[in-house]
């Protein structure tokens, strides 16, 4: 997993709520069998519109996506996270996320920060006034900073520690191998098996 400590970059203002994962990456790209190489598929249908924010020259190179509530709802496709990362995004800032998308993002090192709606609006305005304004997403200090705005955010302590260290979650779980084996010995015998 990609480590995350402090990231500084420019922001992409995505002024939409309910951006489902079908929009982030349309289903027809989910026939691919790799984790990488999905940058071309990010928001593929919306990119047909030359005015779509991702196509605007002013926002090229943005690494922080700032979106409205309920970003990443719908399908569980982890391609949505991979496509965002491939395109260059390191963090997303929104008031609320789809649960599965959020879990996927944090397992891949794409930091999804929750802030109130009015903070999202202030960020949108700051970026509208100056697309080159830097946004700092600081996981050490648990803060988003932009100009004179300093917004604290919270994140589960275990998740934060893992993002800071970049440790693989499976290795962490396998330290409890004894507990897993003990649980298995006590499982109810009538539970079904597949073969």
């Amino acid at each position: 997993m990609e480590q995350f400590t402090v990231h500084t970059g420019t922001a992409l203002p995505l002024r939409h709520s309910d951006v489902d994962t079908d929009q982030i990456i349309p289903a027809r790209f989910c026939v691919r069998s790799t984790r990488t190489g999905h940058a071309d598929a990010l928001f593929a249908d919306w990119r047909d519109d030359p005015d779509f924010v991702l196509n605007q020259a002013a926002h090229q190179g943005a690494t922080v996506l700032v979106a409205g509530p309920d970003f990443g709802t719908g399908s569980s496709r982890e391609y949505a996270v991979w496509a965002l990362q491939d395109y260059g995004f390191r963090a997303v800032i929104a008031p609320r996320y789809g649960d599965i998308f959020r879990a996927n993002s944090l397992l891949n090192g794409l930091l999804t920060v929750v802030v109130p709606t009015d903070v999202v609006e202030r960020l949108w305005e700051a970026v509208a006034a100056d697309p080159t304004v830097e946004v700092v997403v600081d996981l050490m200090a648990l803060e988003v900073r932009c100009g004179d705005l300093t917004q604290p955010f919270s994140l589960d302590e275990e998740v934060r520690a893992r993002l800071l260290s970049g440790e693989d979650l499976i290795s962490a779980t396998l330290r409890h191998e004894d507990a897993i084996a003990a649980y298995e010995r006590g499982r109810r015998a009538a539970l079904p098996t597949t073969r």
Partner: peptide, 8 residues
């Protein structure tokens, strides 16, 4: 769940 969780 997502693909990383499938692996897990």
């Amino acid at each position: 769940i997502g693909a990383s969780q499938v692996e897990h």
